[in-house]
């Protein structure tokens, strides 16, 4: 896993109805060190998904630079793994085939792919579901597969776009705990987009609050690890930080 740098990133769209340029992202700079976990929060429409889509290379940038491990980003690539809100698993591939899709594209052989599938499905607690198809899984299981599919390809940076937004509240807490456990074990570099303030504080080392396309504030989260909801839900430090971030988001 390597570092990620955003330098004066900006994005403008042409608004065909008004005939003017619309600025979605304005002068955003951000440094995510190797093995860091940064959450980006903000109200809907603040441009957080646009930033992620630009880092992923899905959307062209209008100004500034994006550097992954010192190399400038041009289009999508396997150095940046993406976890989608809609899970985006391949419906015609089994869970194991989904997880090993990246390695298969790199030309990794069958035996090695089987080993990768075993390892990452065990990491997600999904060994029993290896031969199932995505539509036979619950929403929570689909997201777990989405996360390990990105991880199994060994990206420099893991980009997560509100991955737990569409699962129920209980499952979401379990998934958050599993993600912290995986992160504490493997220390990938993560950029995590969410609109859920407590999710951001629970998961991240640092929370970036975005407002109208620019960075409003950065809040460090020095909570001890390993983190779990049973402990943090009553923790004063967690509550104070969540409150602080929430106030920032609401003022945004």
């Amino acid at each position: 896993m390597k570092s990620l740098v955003l330098e004066n990133l900006s994005k403008t769209y042409f608004d065909p109805y008004r005939g003017t340029q619309f600025t979605a992202i304005k002068d955003v700079s951000l440094q995510v060190g190797e093995g860091d976990f940064v959450a980006v929060v903000g109200p809907s429409g603040c441009g957080k998904s646009t930033i992620l889509n630009m880092i992923a290379g899905f959307v062209p940038i209008s100004g500034g630079r994006i550097l992954v491990d010192g190399h400038q980003v041009k289009g999508p690539g396997p150095d940046r793994g993406v976890v989608f809100q809609s899970h985006a698993l391949f419906p015609w591939k089994t869970v194991a085939e989904n997880v090993t899709f990246g390695p298969k594209m790199r030309g990794v052989g069958k035996a090695e792919r089987a080993r990768i599938a075993d390892e990452y499905l065990a990491l997600a607690g999904l060994s029993h579901a290896a031969e199932r198809y995505p539509n036979e899984l619950s929403g929570g299981m689909q997201q777990r597969v989405g996360v390990v599919r990105a991880l199994a390809n060994n990206p420099d940076v893991l980009l997560m776009d509100e991955p737990f937004a569409s699962v129920d509240a209980q499952t979401r807490m379990t998934l958050q705990e599993e993600l912290t456990r995986i992160w504490e074990e493997r220390r990938p570099t993560v950029v995590f987009i969410t609109h859920d303030v407590s999710e951001a504080v629970f998961l991240a080392n640092r929370v970036v609050v975005l407002s109208k396309g620019h960075v409003l504030a950065e809040v460090a989260v020095p909570l001890a690890r390993p983190r779990s909801w049973t402990r943090l839900v009553e923790d004063d430090g967690f509550k104070a930080l969540s409150n602080q971030v929430l106030q920032l988001v609401r003022s945004a």
């Binding site: 289009g75 999508p76 809609s86 985006a88 391949f90």
Partner: peptide, 11 residues
């Protein structure tokens, strides 16, 4: 998203 997922997995 499926095309994007495949792209960022290196396809």
């Amino acid at each position: 998203e499926l095309r994007r997922a495949a792209q960022s997995l290196g396809a």
